[in-house]
Design a protein around this nucleic acid. Structure first.
Length: 441
RNA sequence: GUGGCUAUAGCACAGUGGUUAGUGCAUCGGUCUGUGGCACCGAUGACGAGGGUUCGAAUCCCUCUAGCCACCCCA
């Protein structure tokens, strides 16, 4: 507890600032997500960060790690047990029920985007506050819905410059899963001594999760274990086949992964994940989703089939950076207003504002005195033109327009500066569109 | 939640018991109150925190904190 350092306030563990330099990546992902939502007819919905704790216990599932040890939960001043949302679907479904969205034409397609909270151990690409975007389609049990969601998720990642693999499986309906779980437990019973305590516990609590264990011994055993696809009812099986047929038609490559299960209890039938191929062969999930046909009813709504997926921002952006994915061109100022002397400074702030109102993206450095420093600033901003307004120009009622590429300067009447600048910028923008073949950076 | 590794300016690094902790980039200023990219000069700014060993600690030891890696899990 010393004087200086310990008073420094710092980031809470697992939290992250998204600095101006990071924003282009985030903007890119967010805007692509939003654009796609629009073009597929998914309407934006926002839900609060804080929900009743029970919402997640009832949806995500009591036995899951998320609920058991990762939720930021607390009792508020009104003695209510609340939780910072650890995932998005539960809140969306709650809103769907609470506001009667059930009365809208089906499927009700929703797009969601925001921060989530899980008290996990932080690691690269894993934070305690992290962002996801979600697409959810409620009220339609047709396999085409599943396929469309996969198409969107896959397409979004492709548009962001990545090449994901689609991992897909069906975990059937509840009866199917019950029969399968029994078979699985039976398969492992004679092999119990090869299992760690951890896996044994999981086998009891949530047998499906044994399938995606990373323990070498378990992985080997799992290879010969019964597969859930063999336990699907006829309807569930048909559903799955139709989803796959759609994907074939769409020419979306996928990997049938009989060991794919998801960490939340509410899923049934189709489950899928989108993986990046890591150099070392390790897999990293960008996101995933699936059907959750009983969740709405479970949370007190009418029986409503539904499906959705979520994609996490942090890993996505991490991989995009690694892959040097080109970002859309940044919106930067294209003209700089430089002044010399007190009187000119006053005029220049006004001029800057007039340019802005006329739709010209201008910049200035009014606090600087030297012309040199202002030119430096203009250069750094990579503006096309710099306007120079000093004593001489003020007397003549003119202004200098300097082309920053070739250094050519022209004197133009002060009153005409705004339309003149506009005209020139428009002309050079046109020229660039015609000549430039690659939209760099 | 478990185990391991790491922690030096905004960033990338050097310094492994001995003056005032260096370098590059970045930032600010000067050479140069009328012109940017170059050059030169200068300035700002750091040993994660606390304790211990020692004449002396960025360096060795302990504790805490944080990050990273592998688990766990997931996004």
């Amino acid at each position: 507890m010393t004087e200086k350092k310990d008073k420094t306030i710092h980031l809470v563990r697992g939290m992250k600032d998204i600095l101006p330099a990071d924003q282009p990546w985030w903007d890119f992902v967010r805007s692509r997500g939003r654009d796609l939502a629009k073009s597929y007819g998914y309407d934006r919905i926002d839900t609060p960060m804080l929900e009743q704790t029970n919402l997640f216990i009832r949806s995500v599932g009591k036995g899951t790690d998320i609920v058991e040890k990762e939720m930021f939960s607390f009792i508020d001043q009104g003695n209510e047990n609340v939780t910072l949302r650890p995932e998005a679907t539960a809140g969306i479904v709650r809103a769907y029920i609470e506001h009667g969205l059930v009365n809208q034409p089906k499927p009700v397609k929703l797009f969601w985007l925001g921060p989530l909270f899980r008290h996990d151990r932080p690691q690269a690409g894993r934070y305690r506050q992290f962002w996801q975007l979600d697409y959810e389609a409620l009220g339609d049990d047709h396999p085409a819905v599943d396929a469309e969601l996969i198409m969107i998720a896959y397409g979004l990642l492709k548009e962001l410059g990545l090449s994901p693999t689609v991992q897909i499986n069906s975990i059937g309906d509840e009866d199917d899963r019950e029969r399968y779980k029994k078979a699985l437990v039976e398969y492992f019973r004679p092999r119990r001594n090869q299992l760690s305590e951890e896996v044994k516990k999981r086998l009891q609590k949530n047998p499906l999760r044994v399938l995606d264990s990373k323990e070498e011994a378990v992985r080997i055993l799992v290879q010969d274990a019964p597969q859930i696809v063999d336990y699907l009812s006829e309807t569930a099986n048909k559903h799955f086949v139709k989803v796959l047929e759609h994907l074939d038609e769409l020419e979306i490559p996928y990997v049938l992964n009989p060991r794919l299960v998801r960490g939340l209890d509410y899923y049934n039938r189709t489950v899928f994940e989108l993986w990046s191929q890591d150099d070392e062969g390790g897999q990293l999930a960008f996101g995933g989703g699936g059907r959750y046909d009983s969740l709405v009813e479970q949370l007190g709504g009418q029986p409503t089939p539904a499906a959705g997926f979520a994609i996490g921002f942090e890993r996505l952006i991490m991989k995009m950076r690694e892959a040097n994915v080109p970002l859309p061109p940044a919106h930067t100022p294209n003209i700089f207003v430089a002044q010399l002397g007190e009187a000119s400074r006053k005029k220049c702030l006004k001029l800057f504002e007039e340019l802005r109102r006329a739709g010209v993206y201008a910049a200035h450095a009014l606090s600087k005195d030297g012309i040199k420093q202002q030119m430096e600033a203009a250069n750094r901003l990579k503006v096309k033109y710099t306007l120079i307004f000093g004593q001489k120009e003020m007397l003549d009622n003119t202004i200098l327009l300097r082309d920053m590429d070739n250094g050519i300067q022209e004197t133009i009447p002060f009153e005409k500066v705004v339309p003149e600048v506009k005209k020139r910028l428009e002309r050079s923008a046109l020229k660039e569109n015609h000549s430039s073949t690659s939209p760099e950076v």
